[in-house]
Design a binder for these strands. Structure first.
Lengths: 211, 211
DNA sequence: GTCTATATTCAGATAGAC
DNA sequence: GTCTATCTGAATATAGAC
């Protein structure tokens, strides 16, 4: 993904902001241009079309998700040495501060296009539904194989886990958003579905606290 | 809510279908009219404006949610006599077969307008976030007071519960939707967060299975 | 790279015949 | 209650001066 600068970047950021607040179709090139303090026709020096702008936003979200996703092999190693709930916590993707706002907007825009645009649908499915499963399922399976946790259906768990993250990301982007401590508390409560066996020297119910 | 019939109902149903597949702004009155096999100007005999059509869809979702929501006082009584997980299951709102499609569409349309239209935002907040809490919180508090379950934060639980229902409703309305058995299995897995104490004496770990 | 001017298309909506 | 015809404004996008 190219690194944008100057006017092009400003157009991109403003468009992402406005598309997230309204919808893609509700925001015109003129409105974007006004917010950037240029004329609408000048946008076409930076983006071929309105749709090209939208695709750039999809791509921004998708490429950053690829970069930020954790290393599965490391998580699989963690299963052997760390507390099960800590391994699950480590699957959480955290957006760096500089990009957290733009990423949230790009995610919301892509999600809101998912029902009408197959390209957006594919990106949302891959990053928000399929990807959590590619971590939760093998990790939980390994934990069960090592007899570290009580048996459970890893796919059902992944559905809950991804649904929680998805809804937290989507709902109330602008108003009444869930604050981070509460979000993390909810995640931890979800992890209590995974019941840790008191194997070897372990004691159940005593979960390391690092909130 | 008035009962629509004839052409008005057909316009309403077609518009809900098209607004759900694309977005409100992406669908024109002409496109709706074509699908109904009338001319665009004829729609205005039934709905004052495009926005009036949208508001009717909001109202459809909101009014049916009011009608379908369970009776809290009965659920509170159930707490004394029924298994805690069964009480939680009874908070689930089920759309009757005749309206399930239109309700899903109306919910999705309202949700997708929530970030740009305060009227939609209020309806989504009330029905999808606040309402689950108005059941989960007092029910769980009463269960704890009666020493039926292990202590937990009812607000965090409600956040997980509502987030799961919300994401299941919103994501993949058209493609790759979650099938009902899997949805219910996920709900039951969420309820395992609520740890049931056994009778007067207590044994942790043994939860009644009635799936 | 930004501007003015403009082409083209299509949106929501209305008037009035039937 | 549906139609034809039309209004008005706004959308995306392009051409060409500077």
């Amino acid at each position: 993904m190219e690194n944008m600068t100057g006017t092009k970047k400003r157009i991109f950021e403003v468009a992402a902001d406005m598309f997230a607040k309204d919808s893609y179709h509700a925001v015109s090139m003129r409105q974007i241009a006004n917010a950037v303090n240029i004329k609408a026709s000048s946008i076409y020096n930076h983006f071929e079309s309105k749709e090209a702008l939208l695709l750039t936003i999809y791509e921004y979200f998708d490429s950053h998700m690829r970069m930020l996703k954790p290393d599965l092999s490391k998580l699989m190693e963690m299963v052997e040495t760390h507390h099960p709930h800590d391994v699950l916590r480590a699957t959480n993707i955290i957006y760096p501060g500089e990009i957290v706002q733009t990423m949230s907007r790009a995610m919301l825009i892509t999600a809101s296009q998912a029902s009408s645009d197959p390209r957006a649908e594919a990106i949302i499915y891959r990053n928000m539904i399929e990807m959590p499963g590619t971590y939760d399922v093998p990790i939980l399976n390994k934990m069960m194989a090592l007899d570290k946790i009580e048996p459970l259906d890893p796919h059902d768990f992944s559905l809950i886990h991804s649904g929680y993250c998805y809804s937290a990301a989507v709902r109330f982007y602008s108003n009444r958003s869930i604050d981070n401590p509460r979000y993390l508390a909810g995640l931890d409560m979800i992890f209590t579905i995974v019941r840790v066996k008191e194997g070897g020297a372990r004691r159940c119910e005593k979960v390391a606290k690092n909130t």
